[in-house]
Amino acid sequence: ELKPWIEKTVKRVLGFSEPTVVTAALNCVGKGMDKKKAADHLKPFLDDSTLRFVDKLFEAVEEGRSSR
């Protein structure tokens, strides 16, 4: 259920769609990584945008959990 949101956010942050980043982000969430681990995992794909993306990712995960 997070996938469409992650795809949109990747496109907004990077300026283009990147399926590799979407898959990696879903893996981070699925494995229950904390922000630091997720950022380390995604840094090779996102460079300077990593922290901004990870912040948005974790906000969305929290919103998703609290709306259930």
Rank of each mutant, 00 (worst) to 15 (best):
E1N: 09
E1G: 05
E1I: 03
L2R: 00
L2I: 10
L2F: 10
L2G: 00
K3W: 04
K3C: 02
K3I: 10
K3N: 02
K3D: 06
K3Y: 09
P4T: 15
P4L: 15
P4H: 14
P4W: 04
P4K: 15
P4A: 15
W5V: 15
W5Q: 13
W5L: 15
W5N: 09
W5K: 13
W5Y: 14
W5D: 12
I6L: 05
I6T: 01
I6W: 00
I6M: 05
I6C: 04
I6R: 01
E7A: 11
E7F: 06
E7S: 05
E7C: 06
E7G: 03
K8V: 00
K8D: 05
K8N: 10
K8Q: 05
K8R: 09
K8I: 00
T9V: 10
T9K: 01
T9L: 15
T9C: 03
T9P: 04
V10E: 02
V10D: 02
V10A: 04
V10N: 00
V10R: 00
V10W: 00
K11C: 07
R12I: 03
R12C: 02
R12H: 13
R12S: 14
R12L: 11
V13R: 03
V13T: 08
V13W: 11
V13H: 11
L14H: 01
L14S: 01
L14K: 02
L14M: 02
L14Y: 02
G15Q: 02
G15M: 01
F16G: 06
F16K: 12
F16P: 00
F16A: 11
F16R: 12
S17R: 06
S17A: 14
S17M: 10
S17E: 10
E18N: 15
E18D: 15
E18A: 11
P19Y: 01
P19S: 06
P19R: 06
P19E: 10
P19A: 07
T20N: 13
T20P: 05
T20A: 12
T20M: 08
T20C: 05
T20I: 08
V21G: 00
V21Y: 00
V21C: 05
V21F: 09
V21L: 14
V22Q: 00
V22G: 00
V22I: 09
V22Y: 04
V22E: 08
T23Q: 15
A24H: 02
A24V: 08
A24M: 08
A24K: 07
A25P: 00
A25L: 12
L26R: 03
L26E: 05
L26M: 11
L26N: 01
L26Y: 05
L26Q: 07
L26C: 04
N27Y: 14
N27F: 03
N27S: 11
N27K: 07
N27G: 04
N27D: 14
C28N: 02
C28E: 00
C28H: 01
V29G: 01
V29D: 01
G30H: 14
G30A: 15
G30R: 15
G30K: 15
G30C: 14
G30T: 15
G30N: 15
G30Q: 15
G32V: 08
G32Q: 08
G32S: 07
G32F: 05
G32E: 07
G32C: 04
M33L: 10
M33E: 03
M33Y: 09
M33D: 01
M33A: 03
M33N: 10
D34I: 02
D34F: 05
D34Y: 01
K35D: 05
K35E: 02
K36S: 11
K36F: 07
K36Q: 10
K36T: 10
K37R: 12
K37W: 01
K37A: 14
K37S: 13
K37V: 04
A38R: 01
A39V: 14
A39M: 09
A39S: 08
A39F: 12
A39K: 07
D40M: 13
D40F: 07
D40V: 08
D40N: 06
D40H: 09
H41G: 03
H41L: 11
H41K: 05
H41R: 08
H41A: 13
L42W: 00
L42K: 02
L42H: 08
K43A: 10
K43G: 04
K43M: 08
P44K: 08
P44M: 04
P44V: 04
P44C: 06
F45S: 04
F45E: 05
F45V: 04
L46C: 09
L46S: 04
L46I: 03
L46G: 03
L46Q: 04
D47G: 15
D47I: 09
D47Y: 14
D47A: 15
D47E: 13
D47H: 15
D48Y: 04
D48S: 11
D48A: 11
D48I: 06
D48N: 14
D48W: 04
S49E: 11
S49K: 14
S49F: 08
S49A: 13
S49M: 12
S49C: 09
S49P: 01
T50G: 02
T50Y: 02
T50A: 13
L51H: 14
L51T: 14
L51D: 15
L51S: 14
L51G: 14
L51Y: 15
R52Q: 13
R52P: 15
R52E: 15
R52Y: 15
R52H: 14
R52C: 12
F53A: 05
F53D: 00
F53N: 03
V54G: 04
V54W: 01
V54C: 02
V54K: 07
V54L: 01
V54M: 03
D55R: 05
D55A: 01
D55C: 05
D55P: 07
D55L: 00
D55H: 04
D55V: 00
K56Y: 11
K56W: 08
K56D: 14
K56S: 12
K56H: 11
K56L: 15
L57G: 07
L57V: 06
L57R: 07
L57K: 05
L57P: 07
F58W: 10
F58Y: 14
F58V: 09
F58L: 05
E59S: 09
A60Q: 13
A60P: 06
A60K: 14
V61T: 13
V61Y: 12
V61R: 06
V61N: 06
V61W: 04
V61C: 06
E62C: 08
E62V: 08
E62D: 09
E62A: 09
E62H: 10
E62K: 10
E63T: 09
E63L: 11
E63Q: 10
G64S: 13
G64N: 13
R65I: 12
R65C: 11
R65L: 10
R65H: 03
S66A: 13
S66R: 13
S66D: 10
S66G: 13
S66L: 12
S66C: 12
S66K: 12
S66T: 13
S67I: 09
S67C: 11
S67Y: 14
S67F: 05
R68K: 10
R68M: 12
R68I: 11
R68D: 13
